[in-house]
């Protein structure tokens, strides 16, 4: 087999990919959202313990003192710096990188569509995500459920209040082994249940938004002022595939620094690499990140959705093994 010089995607899929990219740019142009282009090679790696980053040794001109740069895991920090600098609504189509993520829905290098809207909350942004799908596909059925509702519907448990014991019982039968189960923290258990028991049943023939995630999984979302058990974060699923993740963004620099430090502490416990907190993002937030909502949409998966592809390799030219 020496045909790995060939693309894994067929010509038809690559043409569809190009027309979807053009349509997305048309969608945002019509709505007056500015396209931006921030670097893939960045000074600060992701602190989220579940996001493994690539790093690049660099000691040439302009190199940071540690002689190391990172391949971005998302353009979020750079785009928020633009927002703080007064850019107004922006979008970006860019490559992002996650070391070690490979499978039917994952390639370590993938394409994201990320955008931000000033003064919007998570619900207004969900409306616009649905608008984009309608723009690309025509009519679609859309539903909106809370994280708590989908856990109730598919597992009969309350993810915010259930005891650890109840969650472990729900995870029985997934064949994880007692020790491995015990080694998961509460969020790990919730992730296990969500990804194995809930997500496969979500969004059959429709777009399903799940919102109000547990506060412990807020990431960069703000907590709901009237119910701080949950964060104003949403994800979009269709046919059991996660397509997007969005936030009513946290704008408080003090809280953001705390979250970064908590993530770094978790990394230290797990013996993972310890990137510095992104001081430039924190400085931008101190200068003032305007109230906004933002979403990252997996573009390769969106294209899979439009093409009816089952494997990500069907819509990207050269997956990692052929890169």
């Amino acid at each position: 087999m020496h045909d790995d010089w060939r693309p894994s995607a067929c010509r038809k899929a690559l043409r569809q990919r190009a027309s979807i990219l053009a349509a997305i740019r048309g969608f945002f142009a019509e709505r007056g959202v500015l396209e931006v282009d921030t670097p893939c090679l960045v000074g600060a790696g992701a602190t989220d313990p579940n996001v493994p980053s690539f790093y690049v040794a660099y000691d040439g001109p302009g190199a940071p003192p540690e002689g190391r740069l990172w391949l971005q895991s998302s353009p979020e920090h750079a785009m928020k710096r633009l927002l703080a600098a007064g850019s107004g609504a922006i979008y970006q189509i860019t490559h992002a990188f996650r070391a070690g993520e490979r499978g039917r829905l994952h390639n370590p290098e993938f394409t994201l569509l990320e955008w931000y809207r000033l003064g919007w909350d998570q619900h207004a942004l969900m409306d616009e995500v649905a608008d984009l799908f309608r723009y690309l596909l025509g009519g679609c059925t859309v539903e909106r459920l809370t994280y708590t509702q989908v856990f109730h519907a598919h597992l009969g448990v309350d993810p915010l209040e259930a005891s650890r014991q109840t969650l472990e019982t729900s995870a029985g039968g997934l064949g994880l082994g007692r020790a491995a189960l015990a080694a998961l923290d509460r969020d790990g258990l919730l992730d296990l249940l969500l990804s194995h028991r809930v997500v496969p049943a979500l969004g059959s023939g429709r777009l399903t938004f799940v919102y109000d995630f547990p506060a412990s999984q807020a990431a960069l979302a703000r907590l709901r002022p009237d119910d701080p058990r949950v964060a104003e974060r949403f994800e979009l699923f269709s046919n059991g595939v996660e397509l997007a993740n969005g936030y009513h963004e946290l704008t408080d620099a003090v809280e953001q620094r705390l979250r970064f430090e908590r993530e770094r502490a978790a990394r230290a416990r797990l013996g993972l690499p310890l990137p510095d907190v992104d001081a430039r993002l924190l400085a931008a937030m101190e200068a003032g990140l305007p109230p906004c909502a933002g979403v990252a949409l997996g573009l390769d998966r969106l294209i899979m959705h439009v093409c009816g592809a089952r494997h990500i390799d069907e819509v990207i030219a050269f997956p990692i093994e052929r890169a």
Partner: peptide, 28 residues
């Protein structure tokens, strides 16, 4: 199958065949 939420814990969901009994089971 590699299963991972964009934000969250990654898992490998596997189907495995017991080479003694021939039975196929799922493990995570």
């Amino acid at each position: 199958e590699f299963v991972k939420p964009g934000k969250g814990q990654a898992f490998n969901r596997v189907k495995i065949r017991n080479l003694r009994s021939g039975r196929v089971v799922e493990r995570t």
